[in-house]
Design a protein around this nucleic acid. Structure first.
Length: 480
DNA sequence: TTTTGAGTTGTTCGA
DNA sequence: GTCGAACAACTCAAA
């Protein structure tokens, strides 16, 4: 009997452009996913991500089966389970897609050593990034710490390898008798039951490779046309919304790059919009490059002096932010979109993050953790890197005086209040002139709209001018 | 080696 | 209403 290949799947749940899976073409293989809440250093998935994972695993299993494969699921510590399965099935080789977080790299390296000890080779592939982080470095061989030169260098390396086609024929090897018993998807308890809070997620998303492909096609057919000018507006469908699909590896960045460049070459997309969108993929690469350089990105400020920032501790204020009752409509709209759909428009992410850090002086790590739990797309690189960017503690530091004004941001990017009305229905009847600062509206306008401040909608939990001055003072301490 | 210019996403103030 | 300047200093990239 042929010794099967063991394909260990993680955040790469797709057939297309999947180098590790490609290695399984034409030979029997075990396709293994391990739901790992046992490895002490791995960050457990957030609630929204777990919900997404359930759909993603389901879709991926169906895709595998359509080609002759089958997804096998285990629950437990990957460090012991991977070698155990490899031994039980006498694997010829173990393959996987690389990860870039500190704990993940350490775990994978340990498993590789363990496998070598039992005479099984392990081979890893890049299926997650356009280029490996160590390829994009400055002349000194160090990571490039500013986005623009990073992306210039990245592009100057030439096009990354073209995406691989999906394997046509797979062959599922029998589950070995000596291996631990498999878990059913249901047994993992990934989907919420009591209470079932996932209705908004179900209504918004279709996890899985097919859903990812649909998003990309729809985006290329419509919204990308005006992407350069409208991507900052949360009041309509102006962005790709591919991020959760990318998070779970349901689509590869190389496939996205190839599709966008093909459309640009045909003249189907304005070059400016196409490049702008690719730069967002570039930001993802940049975040992973930072993560690779700073394995503890979610816990430690990139700039050590920020560890001295005088954050306050205020649980009630944090909860008001998290639940979308700060009294600033654009902030509350964003936090409620997040809670309902597991997603938030990028511009609004910046606004709410700035509000938590600068207006409330609460620790960016707590905001990052909330996003980790509630976003479908939170990953080990983008989430912490972006929070640090807003905090000003990141590599590509913002000027200290960049403190978002939530009223102004609302007026600029949600001019007619479409986004606020959608997510903060108690303000729906307010005129647009009052929608971003109801406390400044004439009493008659409030009454006419059925808004009673402090009752039907909160007053601002902190005064903007006061908060701005307080934040500037706090930042001066760090920068002293 | 030294020098120079730039740095995703902002706000406020005064003319 | 619009516009330009000021808001620090620093680090990094590139010439």
């Amino acid at each position: 009997m042929t010794r099967p290949l063991l394909v260990w799947l993680r955040d790469d749940l797709r057939l297309d452009d999947q180098p590790a899976l490609r290695a399984a073409e034409g030979r029997p293989a075990i396709f293994l996913y391990i739901f790992d809440e046992k490895s002490p250093d791995l960050r457990p998935l957030g609630g929204a991500a777990k919900w997404w994972l359930a759909g993603s695993l389901e879709a991926f299993d169906a895709s595998l089966r359509a080609r002759g494969g089958r997804l096998d699921i285990l629950r437990g510590a990957a460090g012991t389970l991977v070698p155990e399965v490899a031994r039980a099935c006498a694997a010829s080789e173990v393959v996987w897609t690389r990860r870039y977080g500190g704990a993940e790299i350490a775990l994978d390296a340990a498993i590789k050593r363990e496998l070598a000890g039992i005479g099984v080779a392990a081979r890893s592939f890049n299926g997650q990034l356009l280029r490996e982080p160590w390829e994009v470095v400055n002349d000194a061989g160090q990571p490039v710490k500013v986005f623009t030169p990073f992306w210039r260098r990245h592009r100057a390396l030439g096009p990354p390898p073209a995406p691989l086609p999906a394997p046509e024929h797979l062959e599922a090897a029998a589950w070995p008798a000596q291996a631990p018993p498999r878990a059913s998807l249901e047994a993992l308890g990934l989907r919420p039951t009591r209470p079932d809070w996932a209705g908004g997620l179900r209504a918004t998303w279709r996890p899985g490779e097919a859903g990812a492909g649909e998003r990309l096609s729809a985006f290329l057919a419509a919204a990308i046309q005006g992407y350069a000018d409208r991507r900052d507006r949360p009041d309509g469908e102006h962005t790709s919304r591919l991020s959760p699909h990318l998070r779970f590896g349901e689509i590869s960045p190389r496939r996205i790059l190839a599709s966008v460049e093909a459309a640009m070459a045909q003249g189907a997309i304005p070059a400016r919009s196409g490049e702008k969108f690719l730069a967002e993929i570039g930001w993802r690469e940049f975040s992973y490059s930072l993560l690779y350089a700073a394995p503890d990105l979610a816990r430690r400020a990139w700039q050590p002096r920020f560890e001295a920032f005088p954050f306050r501790r205020d649980g009630a204020a944090f909860r008001a932010w998290a639940q979308g009752r700060t009294g600033y409509p654009i902030v509350d709209a964003g936090m409620r979109e997040l809670w309902t759909t597991g997603y938030m428009h990028n511009r609004v992410r910046m606004i709410v993050a700035s509000f938590l850090i600068k207006h409330l002086l609460l620790d960016w790590r707590d905001g990052e953790a909330w996003f980790w739990d509630t976003l479908c797309d939170a990953d080990a690189a983008n989430n912490p890197a972006s929070w640090q960017w807003v905090a000003g503690s990141g590599a590509d530091a913002a000027p200290y005086f960049r403190i978002f004004n939530p009223m102004l941001q609302g007026e600029k990017f949600d001019t007619d209040g479409v986004y606020v009305r959608r997510w903060v229905p108690e303000l729906r009847a307010l005129p647009s002139s009052a929608i971003h600062a109801p406390w400044q509206a004439p009493a008659a306008a409030l009454a006419g709209a059925g808004v009673r401040l402090g009752e039907t909608y909160p007053r601002p939990m902190v005064d903007h001018d006061f908060a701005r001055q307080r934040a500037l003072a706090a930042l001066a301490e760090v920068n002293a």
